[in-house]
Structure formats: structure tokens, C-alpha cells
Nucleic acid binder design. Structure first.
Lengths: 349, 349
DNA sequence: GCATTGAATGACATCGATAACAATAGTAAC
DNA sequence: GTTACTATTGTTATCGATGTCATTCAATGC
């Protein structure tokens, strides 16, 4: 019972002071506290967890001791013992374009919603980019959320067999199984179509890569509504989500589309802005000659002149729902896939 | 030696099939593999790690077995044994404004850079919002990165004593110790001032909350440059980072500033856009009557009409540097605080 | 033929915390 | 005074993987 137990091994490598300094490199364990407090390890464990089966004063004594000795709890050990990590992996599976690693409004607000919900539920959020193999990270997690506007479903196929509860952001896919949460792309397309028709447009153009399932849904809703109103889709230009892709696509259409067009629905605000640039170049005015509707309702849509009409999705809400879905799965429930409504923000174009 | 070892306990709650299904809920351990392969646990461990001390065919046999039995590695156990988590906590400490949980261009690209660097270095990224107490998450990490435009340094003071290598994004603070990585706010302010002066402006306004150290730096650089050119700061309006704050601030200034002003430097693009709105309301034109410079070079700056001149910071690079700094710390090195250059993107205003 | 060497494998302890059960104390009831 | 009972604390095994130090076996050298 020496007053200074001297944790035999493990020298405090980077510490200048003797020891027991809060923030000391040599990490204390419950055993150390137990020895100092002259109690057993389990009592320390209980005391630190506020177990009612530890006498009030003992508990306080141990907690104080822990504080003053700078004890730091080892979550890894608990996780091992308790067989859960309280961690959800968020896999951001972006195309390997280095030009924009994770941009757009996309994952940020979504992440915000996810974090908000998961941290209040006591879970940690482990962030992974699809670049590396997510394997290791995901395996350690209690659940996983997949974000990414992937045109293919390789990521899903990779993640699914790992046996971790999985929720995917996007449009439900026919072949694969997991729970999906997404916004109503079909409705988004329909809203855009309805608006264009309402403003008297009849010869419409769709800009977007329909290999992305979400875009395919938008196209579907778009054409469906068109058909029922006697308008026609005069062109479908596959294009990336970028400004430049929008410029290029519309430049092409201006020469290639016999009969021209008077309305554009773009799968992102960036595309829409690019499209408007190309229209302006060609001495066409928006919205007098051509009406344009974008997607995502980003700040740049609002501040562009003329202000861009755009389909709005509530990313934060989406994030929250994603989180809730994983938690439900972990809980053994079987949440249904979920489709969140979109709404059209009408502006000048 | 029954052909079906039947991991006694732990019923496979959510599994419909019998067992050994890849993705089965009952998680296999190395012990299970060992039993099936008629080798010891440690041999399995070595085989799965491609240890050269396991015979080629044994190794392959075990690896195949692991694959077909759907074995999932338990990182928690390894981390406990190896005394490291290979995890970096990223604490996003935003003001508790629920209106924008994590927006702005701010953490997204930064996060992108961080992820990119850390995942390639084999580390995981644990995301935490400052809302909850970051304690638990951070303690389990090998290192931590603090992001947040906090006006105060409570977060730093909270994190620092936890004994985890810490790197902070922002402006180095006099009182506190940790390693900082940030962009050169002083230079940003100076650039803005130089540009305004260059375009003939003499009576200037600063919009931003200088309790934020980064803004204080900008102001410092701004006024310093002003002074040396004979221009004057006629008003300093503390204001939030938002559009509305910008509108309100400038409305106030328009009535309260004797002699008026001909140049505005705003601490965010949103503020700048708000300022322009207020100017337009007052029948002033930009840049003829008043020149405006924003900060962050967001998409909305570029697409606004007139296009907003703005100070650009390379977030992704910042993220990479943050990551490198933590890794260095973990490695026992003592990296210096780092200040990244900014540049002015000159547009119409 | 026997010692020596090396390759391959195994037994055991260990990381730090916790559940299940055991044990001790002190108190109340009769 | 003895039994039953509660409050409090302790003992032991355990989570799953891995480092350390044996151990086994075959090949090699003399």
C-alpha cells in the first residue's frame, strides 16, 4: 500500500512533469483509481457510471479522484465488452472527380441532419469517403449510411453483404434490397413540368444524366406530366452536374434542335446556370425566350440574376430521417423506405 | 469436433436462414474460424494479417474459410489490444443557432480535405457537433481537429486538457496553446483594403463581428493597409455572418454615417450580398456609388449580379494541412502553426 | 546418428471495462 | 439472540484480437 502505486510499466513518454498531471500521456485505468481509492475496480466502474448501488460518499470520492488524477475513460474497452460501438459509418461515395471532392450543397446539410440526430441519440458519426475501401471503418460500426449520387450501385453491393444495418440516400433501386431514404425526384420532375406548362411552354428540354437513378426519376415525373398537358420533350441531353456541362449541353442543343425549345429543366442549379449562360451567349433571354428551372435550390440560384426557379429538397430533414432509419434498423425494426416531398421555389426564370 | 460448432449462445435474432449466412447477425470470431480450420486462434490472426510466418497454403485456406463463412473483423478488439483507435475526432463547434446547423462553405470542403488526407493515411474520421459534450467521442480518438468559427475559446479549453493531440482551425490565439492551422485573415483584410483603395475608395466600412478572432485579424489587416494609403474607416458594424445581418447593418449605416461611405468590406459573402440589397433599396448602385468586397468566394458571389469580388481561401488545402498537423502530433513531432495564403478574386463589385 | 537450426504453430497473458454471481456487512424482525 | 434481509462491495469470467515466449517437427551439417 505505498502511497504512490507507480504504474510499473508504460513510461510517460512525452510528459515533462512527474506524473498524475491531468493530460499526462500515461493513461490511467480504473485499476489505478481503484488502488488509490482502496476499492475494487468494479466499484470504480460503478461509481463513474453513477450506479445507485454505490454509496453516495464513495461515489463522490471516486469521481473526485478521477477528476483530479485526470482519468480518461476508455471507450474502446467498453465497446468491446458491450459488443457495440455506438458508431454509425457515413460513407460518402462520390465519383472520383478530384475537381470537387465533396461539394455542392449535397452532403453538408445532409450530414448536419445526420449528426444532429445521431449525436443526440448518443451515437458517433464515422465519416468515410468512398475512395478508400470503406471496409474496415464500416465493419466496426453499428450501422451505416450511404450517401452519394452514384450512377451505379457498386457501393451498395459492397456494403450490403457486410451485415451492417444499412440505409441509403437516393432513389430506391429495383434490384437491391436496403432501406432507402430520398426526396421525391418523381414529384420534383412533375413540379418542374407543371410550372413550365403553366407559364405557357410547350417545347421542353431535360438536362441531366439519367444513368443516375435520381435523375431518371425526375425525367419520369417530368415527361409524365408533360404528356398529360400536350407539351413535348424535344431533347434529352445527358450531362454532368456542373456549370460547364450545362453550357456545353445547351450550346449543342441550340444548333441541333430543329424547331428550338422554350423551356429547360436542369438536374442541378449549376447546370441551369450554365444553360442560361449559353442562352445569353446566343442572344436569347430568360425567361422571355426560354424558361429555366433548376434543382437543389442552392444559394447561387437565389442570387443569380435573373433569380433561378428551382426544385427544393430539405436536406437536413433527409439527414434526420436517414439517421432515424438506421437507428430503427439497429433496434431490430424494419422501417420502410421513405420519400420526402420536394417543393418548387418559384423565382424569375 | 462436430461439423457444426454452433456458437452456443447469442441467437441470430434477425436472421431468417439457419446460419453461416454471410451477413448473419451472430458474429463470428477468430476462435470460430480456428475451430473449423483445426488450427489455433493465433494462427488465424496471423493468416488474416498475411503474416509471412504462416505457411502459404494454411494462410489461403484460412482466408478462404473466413470469406465463405462471412467472418467480420472486430476492429474494437484490435484497437483495445493495440492501444490505439486509428481515429481522429473532428469537432464542429458551431454557434447553437439552429437555423443553420452547419452551413456556409465552411466545413464541407474543409472536411473533404481532412477526410482525403486522413483516410489515405489509414485513419478514420469521427464527426462530432459541439452541441453534445464531445468528451466521449474525443477521448476515444488518437487525435482531434476543432473546426468552428467560435467567438470564444471555450471549446479549445474543453478539449485541450483531454490529453489528445489537438489541432484547431482558425486564428492563433494568444492565451491558448494548441497548434493552429488557418488562412491568413490579416492578409485577406489587407487584400480587400488594397483593392478598394486601388479603385479610388477612401471612406470605408467594415462589416463583421470582431469578437471572432478571425474577423478581428481581417479588420487588423484592413485598417493597417488603409492607414498607409490615406483612406479612413468610417464605420465598423458588428454583424453576424448572414444575409439579413448585412441588410440590417447597412440600413443602419446609411442613416447613421455622416459623410457616407464608398466602400464596404464584409466578413462573408452573405453579408456582402445583404449589404448590396440594402444599398439597392437606397437607390445606390454598386460599384459606382459603393464598392463591395465579400469573403469566402462562395458560388453565390460568383453568380450574383453584379458579380461579387471576394476573398478566397482554399478550404480543401486547409483540411489537408489540418490533417497533416494532427498526424504529425500523433507521431510525436511538434508541427508549427500554419497560415495559408488567401487571394482576392476580383469581379464586378 | 545426433546436435543444430529454422519454419511453422501453439499456449498464455493482456488490453480496460463490465455483467453475473458471491460475499460481507449492518439492520430489522421475531 | 438468532434469522432474514438489504445495502454495499468484491471475485471471476468475458468481450475478440495480438505480442511474447514456448514448442513441435523436419531438414541440414558434421
Amino acid at each position: 500500500m505505498s502511497p504512490r502505486p507507480a504504474k510499473s510499466s508504460r513510461p510517460a513518454a512525452s510528459s515533462l512533469m512527474a506524473d498524475a498531471v491531468p493530460g499526462d500521456a500515461a493513461r490511467l485505468t480504473m485499476a489505478d483509481l481503484a488502488e488509490r481509492a482502496q476499492v475494487s475496480i468494479i466499484t470504480v466502474s460503478r461509481a463513474l457510471r453513477d450506479s445507485p448501488s454505490v454509496r453516495e460518499d464513495t461515489r463522490r470520492r471516486i469521481q473526485d479522484l478521477a477528476r483530479e488524477m485526470g482519468y480518461r475513460f476508455n471507450a474502446t474497452a467498453r465497446n468491446l465488452r458491450l459488443q457495440r460501438s455506438h458508431t454509425i459509418a457515413v460513407v460518402v461515395d462520390m465519383k472520383p472527380t478530384p475537381e470537387r471532392p465533396m461539394s455542392g450543397p449535397f452532403p453538408l446539410d445532409l450530414l448536419g441532419g445526420i449528426c444532429q440526430e445521431l449525436t443526440t441519440a448518443g451515437y458517433n458519426v464515422l465519416l468515410t469517403t468512398g475512395q478508400s475501401q470503406p471496409a474496415a471503418a464500416v465493419q466496426a460500426a453499428d450501422g451505416a449510411i450511404l450517401l452519394g449520387q452514384g450512377a451505379d450501385d457498386t457501393a451498395v453491393r459492397q456494403l450490403l453483404p457486410m451485415g451492417v444495418p444499412l440505409v441509403v440516400w437516393g432513389a430506391p433501386q429495383p434490384g437491391v434490397d436496403p432501406v432507402f431514404v430520398g426526396s421525391d425526384n418523381h414529384q420534383g420532375g412533375a413540379l418542374a413540368a407543371a410550372r413550365l406548362i403553366e407559364t405557357g411552354r410547350r417545347r421542353l428540354v431535360f438536362l441531366g444524366d439519367t444513368r443516375h437513378r435520381e435523375n431518371a426519376e425526375r425525367l419520369h415525373g417530368f415527361t409524365e406530366t408533360l404528356a398529360s398537358a400536350g407539351a413535348v420533350l424535344v431533347a434529352l441531353a445527358p450531362c454532368d452536374f456542373t456549370f460547364n456541362a450545362g453550357v456545353a449541353a445547351v450550346r449543342g442543343l441550340l444548333t441541333d434542335t430543329p424547331g428550338g425549345f422554350d423551356g429547360i429543366f436542369a438536374c442541378s442549379d449549376a447546370i441551369a446556370l450554365g444553360a442560361m449562360r449559353a442562352l445569353t451567349e446566343a442572344k436569347l433571354t430568360v425567361p422571355d425566350d426560354v424558361s429555366v428551372i433548376g434543382y437543389d435550390d442552392t444559394p447561387m440560384a437565389a442570387f443569380h440574376t435573373p433569380a433561378l426557379t428551382s426544385v427544393h429538397q430539405d436536406w437536413t430533414e433527409g439527414g434526420v430521417r436517414l439517421a432515424q432509419a438506421v437507428l430503427a434498423l439497429i433496434n431490430g425494426e424494419h422501417p420502410d423506405s421513405l420519400i420526402l416531398p420536394t417543393r418548387l421555389v418559384v423565382r424569375a426564370t
